[in-house]
Computed example of a mutant assay.
Amino acid sequence: MVTFKEELKKVVLQSHRVFNLIDEIAKPTIALLNGITFGGGCELALACDIRIAEEHVQIGLPEVKLGLFPGGGGTQRLPRLVGEAKAKELMFLGEPLSTKEGKEIGIINKVVPTGEGLNAAQMMAKRISGYSLQALSRIKRSVNDGMELEFKAALDLELNHFLDVFQTEDVREGVQAFLEKRSPKFIHL
């Protein structure tokens, strides 16, 4: 017979797998926040690379107020984003942040007026998608993987990605377009 604890563990591990897939996808990810973003919703947003919030949004990890604990990666992703002390404060108090406060500490990248979030996210996504996926994916891997390494090892990782990107067709196209004073047409190879 499966116990409640075993069943709960299974559910939490599944959410970890989903959030990790989002975090580790090679392409940049953008979360659009347009309402209350508490608990698991906040943890989902933290798994994304960029967070755009409409000005009425509140964000936070209020689990402590219910005697609960952030279990979807919040205790690990939030400190990496805002620092250990601020993350502990936010989780110990469980108070929601306004978009202004969220932007000030780095949880939110951009605040837009209510109703304009989808357009802002699509514009940013379109702009990013115009760049080389070869470069974008290496930037993302360098940052994500480098955060887990000592600084010198992280610089070595960056160097390896920098050298690898010079083997791509997109670098050749980007440099050629620059020399010809035109916009590059990346093929993501």
Score class of each variant (00 low, 15 high):
Leu44Trp: 13
Gly67Asn: 07
Leu118Met: 14
Gly73Met: 13
Ala87Pro: 03
Gly106Glu: 05
Gly115Arg: 12
Gln58Val: 15
Arg77Tyr: 13
Ile105Glu: 02
Leu46Val: 14
Leu81Trp: 08
Gly83Glu: 12
Gly72Ser: 08
Gly94Pro: 11
Val112Met: 07
Glu84Ile: 13
Lys100Asn: 04
Pro113Leu: 07
Leu97Ile: 04
Lys65Asn: 02
Gly106Trp: 03
Ala87Phe: 05
Glu55Asn: 05
Leu68His: 09
Phe38Trp: 08
Leu66Pro: 08
Val112Ala: 05
Pro79Cys: 04
Pro70Tyr: 06
Gly72Cys: 07
Glu84Thr: 10
Glu116Val: 01
Cys42Asn: 07
Asp49Val: 15
Cys48Leu: 09
Gly106Gln: 03
Val64His: 11
Pro70Gln: 09
Leu81Tyr: 03
Lys103Asn: 00
Lys100Glu: 12
Glu101Phe: 09
Leu93Lys: 06
Leu78Cys: 06
Ile107Trp: 00
Gly117Phe: 06
Lys88Phe: 15
Leu81Cys: 04
Ile52Leu: 11
Ser98Leu: 01
Lys110Glu: 05
Gly74Asn: 03
Gly74Pro: 08
Glu89Ser: 12
Leu90Lys: 12
Leu66Tyr: 12
Leu90Met: 14
Leu61Met: 14
Val64Cys: 08
Asn119Gly: 06
Gly39Val: 10
Gln76Asn: 09
Gly72Phe: 13
Asp49Pro: 09
Leu78Asn: 05
Lys110Asn: 04
Lys103Met: 00
Gly72Tyr: 10
Ile105Arg: 01
Glu84Tyr: 13
Gly117Asn: 11
Gly60Arg: 00
Ile105Ser: 00
Ala47Pro: 12
Asn119Val: 04
Lys65Trp: 14
Thr99Ile: 00
Cys42Glu: 11
Glu101Asn: 07
Gly40His: 10
Leu78Gln: 07
Glu63Arg: 02
Glu101Ala: 10
Ala85Thr: 13
Leu46Asp: 03
Lys65Ser: 13
Leu68Phe: 02
Leu97Thr: 01
Val82Tyr: 09
Val111Ala: 00
Lys110Gly: 00
Val57Asn: 01
Leu61Pro: 04
Glu55His: 14
Leu44Phe: 15
Met91Gly: 03
Gly74Gln: 13
Lys86Ser: 06
Ala53Tyr: 12
Pro96Thr: 09
